[in-house]
């Protein structure tokens, strides 16, 4: 696995390093900035770049969720939340600037420590590659014939599971919409009307 890099392998390694470097720059910029609108925009950029990185890691389904939720919905939700608060964050003072970096460093150290126990990339003896995984790999081209095995598992072998999840998410969204409402009968419009009457 390690020996014998070809040109494409080197290019992929370079792409990974560049994407992670961009993510690092965006993360530091989000931590340093005080304009909330710029932070919302940068978090959208962070989601887009990390979704691209997930595609480069061949985790296409995760990448798509990240792009839809991170860059789409959560940007809109954060902008809506920004309506209710100020436009700039207050700068932290003194010791409060040290605590977050300590938390981040400790979490990073724990994650790096956890990766030591992981099986090597592409290890044929790892749990993911020994039990049902080989079965899916062997049967998918014959039975379903989609190029991505994860898609086959999610949409066909566990199709009822995915259908149930979609039903749960749809019901939750419907309940939130019914409670908060949209347009003229929505909660915020009602509040605005009450404010105007006073």
């Amino acid at each position: 696995m390690i020996a014998g890099y070809s040109g494409a392998d080197l290019a992929i390694a370079l792409i990974n390093v560049l994407l992670l470097g961009l993510l690092f720059v965006v993360g530091v910029a989000i931590a340093r900035m005080r304009s909330l609108f710029a932070i919302v925009m940068l978090s959208g950029i962070y989601s887009l770049i990390s979704a691209t990185w997930f595609v480069a890691l061949d985790a296409v389904d995760v990448a798509f969720t990240e792009a839809a939720v991170g860059a789409g919905i959560s940007t809109a939700l954060l902008l809506g939340a920004m309506l209710l608060t100020a436009r700039t964050a207050k700068p932290e003072k003194g010791a409060m600037q040290i605590v977050p970096i300590l938390v981040v460093l400790a979490t990073g150290a724990m994650l790096v420590y956890a990766t030591i126990d992981l099986p090597a990339f592409g290890d044929p003896d790892s749990p993911a590659n020994t039990y049902v995984g080989t079965d899916y790999l062997e049967r998918t081209p014959r039975e379903i014939a989609v190029p991505n095995i994860v898609t086959a598992v999610l949409a066909s072998y566990r199709g009822f599971d995915t259908l149930g999840e979609t039903g749960v998410v749809f019901t939750a969204a419907l309940a939130v919409i019914l409670l908060l409402g949209f347009g003229e009968r929505s909660l915020s419009a009602t509040f605005n009307r009450k404010k105007d009457k006073k």
């Binding site: 792009a67 789409g72 940007t75 419009a189």
Partner: peptide
């Protein structure tokens, strides 16, 4: 296919941000 879906998400989120600027509301 994934690239095309990303283009759709990008378009919708840009429209949402600009609508937010114009009306100060999504509603």
């Amino acid at each position: 296919d994934i690239a095309v879906l990303y283009a759709l998400i990008n378009f919708v989120s840009t429209i949402a941000i600009l609508k937010f600027f114009r009306y100060r509301s999504f509603q």
